[in-house]
């Protein structure tokens, strides 16, 4: 049952990703991305990562995509825009961009297949899942406390940067 659900959700995630590219309006892209992220969250849950499934929904669907929607509505970009026009001159032409995508996909799949010997049966998932919160917290505040503090600094810097970027009213104002 869970296996069938996994494959259905994979299809939903891929279709959502395809929708991001194919949608004519940015609004459609955001909604497709939302579907893709929700499918991914349920896949995390099925795979045994309970906390990260919740974090995925809270952070991506709850914060990041709302930010995208907010900007689209603020700038009134809901109308139809241009679709498949490439901006990178060296990659112009449909064949080149298809080739790049196929090459990236084949490279990644090849990397996985090359290491196929390492794969085995998945471990049984206990009640706490594969990301038990007490251990995660111990890791964050113990072994990984330095990256944790670095990322807090990054968040502070981001806050300052975004305020500075968004505060400027007119280009004549200078700084």
């Amino acid at each position: 049952m869970a296996e069938i659900l996994f494959y259905v959700l994979s299809a939903v995630a891929l279709l959502g990703a395809l929708g991001v590219i194919l949608a004519r309006s940015p609004m459609g892209s955001v909604l497709s991305l939302l579907g893709s992220f929700f499918a991914l969250a349920v896949i995390y849950l099925l795979a045994g990562f309970q906390f990260l499934a919740a974090a995925q929904i809270l952070v991506y669907a709850g914060a990041v995509l709302v930010l995208f929607l907010f900007v689209i509505m603020l700038l009134n970009l809901g109308q139809l825009g241009t679709r498949f026009q490439l901006s990178l001159a060296p990659l112009a032409g449909p064949r080149a961009r298809l080739a790049v995508t196929v090459a990236v996909a084949l490279g990644l799949v090849g990397l996985i297949v090359a290491q196929g010997a390492a794969f085995g049966a998945p471990p049984p998932v206990g009640d706490a899942g594969l990301d038990p919160l007490p251990e995660l917290a111990l890791g964050l505040f113990g072994r990984y406390s330095l990256p944790f503090q670095a990322i807090s600094l990054l968040l502070l810097a981001t806050m300052v940067a975004v305020v500075v970027l968004a505060k400027r009213q007119r280009k004549e104002d200078g700084r």
Binding site: L14, A17, I21, P26, I72, G81, T82, R97, A105
Partner: peptide, 19 residues
């Protein structure tokens, strides 16, 4: 890898900065 490839495709193909 399929999701990543679709992300690369979208990055290369679309001109809208938000997308």
């Amino acid at each position: 890898s399929a999701l990543f490839a679709l992300g690369v495709l979208g990055f290369l193909v679309r001109r809208n900065v938000i997308v």
